[in-house]
Nucleic acid binder design. Structure first.
Lengths: 259, 259
DNA sequence: CAAATAGTGTCTTTTAGACATTATTAA
DNA sequence: TTAATAATGTCTAAAAGACACTATTTG
């Protein structure tokens, strides 16, 4: 595996040869941890902007592979389930007063011409994924020396149209939540009903009826009650549940309906 | 509006300058007419292959605009509702033994080098639409001197991965049928229950219960019964219905559920 | 009256949605 | 016993799904 720095150098120098011109991938990496939903952003010190982990697509790989490669380089995670949700092709989308040949040249260490293909109109293929905070080992890389999980309600000024991309990714995530099960990668193997309900509530940004919610998931067979209580303090102990992996997998393929 | 021939010439000559490299749009145009669902293909005489109406994307336009432009040039229709359904980015997807510099050179009228960007890995953005046969005025254009509506079950050998693209488009069309109303552009202003039911049955490739189907559409308010019979011969005359445009539009935006 | 096709209603089962009380634990 | 939080059940309304007979037209 080459480093992000090596890759960036290679890209700028001979991008037109090994990478697909005019196309990129943008990853929106959502992170869930203890009742909070955040998004992973990287700070580009040259541009003084926060941005999504993005990258170009090699001519020898498909878009999914490129998105996975970029995600792996930045987070160290190999197993992220990246979902392609939308493409962004507005002709003006890669114009930003802080994204200029001068700035990029400084960053690369040698002059970059304004006709460099990196300033061409670029179609971006948007991917999102959802993971557990604590699993992620942030690898900030060359462009950025800082990375941070940001609260969705409190984002900084972002590069290009990355704010729009995050908004659209969140819409897709929420929509998908109603049609596909979630939680396998986000919860411990054994979890309680309140834990999984709060996961849903956090992502959807709204409260759900605890009785109806439990009834839905158990009647679908996606979760199974264990004969075991979670040890806590100060109140009644909640039962532990686990996923029924077969039903869960089938629901991922065939879809479900949660209202 | 420039012709397809002029556009193609322009594309080959200076594509790298005005068009986005490594990206194209492929339109799957489904046509419905009297209980039949077909797809519109064009025959490329140079390549001796049938293909989808495809094109490149100008740097000054977005993907939707490019798809609409290509569709308009080939069909004369301005009002097609093109739906972006999937991208195709397999690195080997544009390799075809019948798509070579020699053949393309003949087609262009001057030599095309094998390093021409048109042979680069190309990501295709797939769009589909559904229209009425009889509304379409086929404009075969430069590459193709024949165009034809093909039965989905009986397609010829297709260019590149266009067969796969059609398969995926059909999947999306069918899935969408369960969540969005259809028929406004496909049926006459006044239509009968059997007509709209058969439209659904044709696209889905399966029979539906007539009573439950009628109940669903009327209870949603999408169609409204008129106090008028369709004049036919030899059997009981069916009532005419019309769409409730407000409800229909709202259902397009917010989605419905038809099982 | 026969052939063709359209129209229509009912019953059952499942699901959604609203809603409040009891149970358990630690301090 | 209090504070905190979890567990649980019932009723109603709506929707899905299965199913068969009657009505109208033409020849």
């Amino acid at each position: 595996m080459i480093s992000a720095k090596e890759e960036m150098f290679e890209l700028l120098a001979k991008g037109g040869k090994d990478y697909r011109a005019n196309v990129s991938v943008d990853n929106v990496i959502f992170g869930y941890h203890e009742k909070e939903l955040k998004v992973l952003l990287f700070h580009n010190i040259h541009l003084s902007l926060w941005m999504l982990p993005s990258g170009y697509i090699k001519k020898s790989e498909d878009a999914e592979t490129a998105a996975a490669r970029v995600a792996r380089q930045r987070t160290g995670l190999d197993s992220l389930f990246l979902q392609q949700f939308k493409i962004f092709s507005d002709p003006g989308r890669n114009v930003d007063p802080l994204f200029t040949p001068e700035i990029l040249g400084k960053l690369a260490g040698y002059p970059i011409d304004q006709n460099h293909w990196i300033f061409d109109a670029v179609i971006s293929i948007g991917f999102y994924t959802l993971t557990e905070f604590s699993k992620v080992n942030i690898n900030a890389g060359y462009f950025s020396e800082e990375a941070k999980w940001w609260d969705l309600a409190d984002l900084p000024r972002l590069f290009l149209d990355h704010q729009l991309i995050i908004n659209e990714a969140l819409k897709s995530l929420r929509l998908n939540l109603y049609h596909y099960p979630i939680g396998y990668e986000l919860l411990p193997e054994k979890f309680t009903l309140p834990e999984i309900r709060i996961l849903y509530e956090t992502i959807l940004g709204k409260q759900m009826d605890d009785r109806n919610f439990a009834r839905k998931l158990t009647s679908l067979g996606i979760i199974v009650k264990l004969d075991e209580l979670k040890q806590m303090h100060g109140h009644r102990l909640p039962y532990l549940y686990k996923f029924n992996k077969e039903v869960y997998q089938q629901a991922l393929t065939e879809g479900i309906f949660i209202s």
